[in-house]
Structure formats: structure tokens, C-alpha cells
Design a protein around this nucleic acid. Structure first.
Length: 179
DNA sequence: ACTCCGATTGTT
DNA sequence: ACAATCGGAGTA
């Protein structure tokens, strides 16, 4: 479910401005038995992780460290909490706006916090149906399986052994270590 | 009410 | 190495 999102396009239209990018890095958070998930068994169903329990094809957007909005795609059937965190995008459209939103920084959409900022994503989009504006997910590149690399997830403290991070080899918009 | 802490990023 | 910054979750 996670690697299939590589190559898909995320598109936003915020305040009338269109931005989009191709997904090049993701992480899966799967089910109540995934201790690193926001919907882990010990936490249960709460207001924050509600979208993770909803139908697939919606957004789960959360605020981390009081600063960064991060985008997930809900992937499992209703009632079973699973989502894929989008960690890296190759910019496609609206790069001027993205740069401006990023304060002129070089890295427009490498890393979950940066791409959230570049695309103007906020908590207002939590639970949003990804087949409709202003936040959409649509097909993009065909990605060959041999171009996909796998590694442990980044920045978590639990279940650090599970290899649930997937990314496109040699793509410069992948965050962290490119194994 | 009060504590601890995080699926991050930018600066020192 | 550390600060920024705030809401979620646990405890009471």
C-alpha cells in the first residue's frame, strides 16, 4: 500500500494558488499493533487520529512539535487505522509559491514538515477526501520496482527495526539517509 | 491543572 | 548539541 504511492502526484489549491509535486518518499504506519503509530493500541481512537480510522483515500494531517503540519494518506478499510506519511516530493507546479512559503530556503519539499509548508497544508485539511480539491492525489509517474529502496522509518523511537520506509533511489528530494 | 513528549527543522 | 512551540495523552 505504501510503495504504490511513490510516483503519485499531490496537488493543492490554497488561496487560489496551485502547487503540486510527485511523491518520492513515504512511510507506512499500519494498524493498532504498530507501536510507532498515532493509532497504536495503547492510545486507541482519539480526536487526533480519527481520520486514520476513516475510509481510505482521505488525508490524515497532524501537527508535530507545535510547528510542522504533516500529510498522510489513509490506506486501510474503515475501522482499521493505517496511513502513509508523505516524506518527500519532487516539485512539479507552483514552485514560485512554494519557495516563497518556505522563506526562500533551498529545500522546498524534502521532508514531511517542509512539504506541508510548501503546499500550504494545515489541520483544516485533516480528513479531507483526496479525490477532490483543494487537496488531491492523482496518478503521476510509473515507478519501476527496482528503483524503489526500503529502510527503517525515520525519527521514531518505537519499532525502529521495521522497514516501512520506501523511497525512489537517487532522487534528490528524499529526506534523511538514502540507503 | 499539570506533566511529559513528539512520524521536524533550523541554528549554534 | 539545542531551541522553537503547542496540542495530545496520561495522571490526578
Amino acid at each position: 500500500m505504501a510503495p504504490e504511492l511513490l510516483g503519485c502526484v499531490v496537488e493543492t489549491r490554497v488561496e487560489g494558488v496551485l502547487t503540486s509535486g510527485v511523491i518520492v518518499e513515504v512511510e507506512a504506519y499500519v494498524g493498532p499493533h504498530d507501536p510507532a503509530s498515532h493509532a497504536a493500541e495503547r492510545i486507541g481512537r482519539t480526536r487526533r487520529n480519527e481520520a486514520m480510522f476513516g475510509p481510505p483515500g482521505r488525508a490524515y494531517v497532524y501537527l508535530i512539535y507545535g510547528i510542522h503540519w504533516c500529510l498522510n494518506v489513509v490506506t486501510a478499510e474503515e475501522g482499521y487505522p493505517a496511513a502513509v506519511l508523505v516524506r518527500g516530493l519532487e516539485p512539479l507546479q507552483g514552485m514560485e509559491v512554494m519557495r516563497s512559503r518556505r522563506g526562500g530556503a533551498d529545500a522546498l519539499s524534502r521532508g514531511p514538515g517542509r512539504l506541508g509548508q510548501a503546499l500550504g497544508i494545515t489541520g483544516a485539511l485533516d480528513g479531507h477526501d483526496l479525490s477532490t480539491p483543494p487537496l488531491r492525489l492523482r496518478p503521476g509517474w510509473e515507478v519501476e520496482p527496482r528503483d524503489i529502496a526500503r529502510s527503517p522509518r525515520i525519527g521514531i523511537r518505537r519499532a525502529t527495526d521495521l522497514e516501512l520506509r520506501f523511497f525512489i533511489r537517487d532522487n534528490p528530494h528524499v529526506s534523511g539517509a538514502r540507503v
